[in-house]
Design a protein around this nucleic acid. Structure first.
Lengths: 125, 125
DNA sequence: ACTTGACTTGGATTGAGTCCAACGTAGGAT
DNA sequence: ATCCTACGTTGGACTCAATCCAAGTCAAGT
């Protein structure tokens, strides 16, 4: 556990929003000016493989990092600004996929992504 | 309707798989050698806004284009090779998102993405 | 034939992320 | 205390997918 890793972990822990890698880097650099982008990516990658943080790739903009990895949830994404909210829909979509629709795949996970406009972007449109 | 656009449309129509823009370009170039990447992107973009084709961005690899835009469906993605199958799960996830979980968003769409390994990649792992 | 406007081209550019060789530093062995 | 080694970090180069843009081409209308 180095200073750099601690700072990255703190940034994610403090924020309850979904930051991009660049935003994490900017906030980390505020506390530890000479931290490099590569280190932020390395550390985020480790946090993801440790299961502490989720990677959310909703389109081909920057990935976002979700510190709320322990409570299962899905995402509501604004098509305008890319911001993300956690949501907890009813139902279990994994159970809704019959064997006949699995084509021999080993299905391990399901992501539900709701798309729409946040109040802010809806007002602008 | 130019020759270039026809070729791109034909490629998508003929294939019932989910091609990347590069694959579309390669197949189009087989029929019309000097077609440029930019034109393929332009044409795919138009087909998407016409609603003839769906864009599927599952991660930060290349987007894939889904010619099956008229029958609603979801996707099963192989984490190994990125290939995609269409699936038709039961249930209606839009109805599963209560108003209290919408945070003022105008929710217009939902995507369900199942992740796993295709038989091929599972055998290799 | 000339003009207009749409389409295409391909090379440059962008954005996000990854790679890699060189550097620093902390801990353990001598 | 000194050296060695391994790991972490750095920052610049690179990749890949996609987009932008200025210049070229073509067809249709007048």
């Amino acid at each position: 556990m180095t200073a750099q890793r601690r700072v990255v972990a703190e940034v994610l822990d403090g924020e309850h929003v979904h930051l991009t890698a660049d935003e994490v880097h900017a906030r980390a650099a505020a506390k530890l000016p000479e931290i490099s982008r590569a280190t932020v990516y390395n550390t985020l990658g480790e946090l993801v493989s440790l299961g502490e943080v989720l990677e959310v790739a909703t389109d081909r903009r920057a990935k976002r990092y979700d510190p709320n990895a322990h409570r299962p949830h899905h995402h509501l994404v604004c098509a305008g600004c890319g911001s993300i909210r956690d949501v907890h829909p009813a139902g279990n979509p994994l159970a809704d996929l019959p064997d006949s629709e699995r084509f021999g795949f080993t299905v391990s996970d399901v992501e539900v992504t709701y798309r729409g406009l946040c109040p802010n972007c809806a007002a602008k449109a």
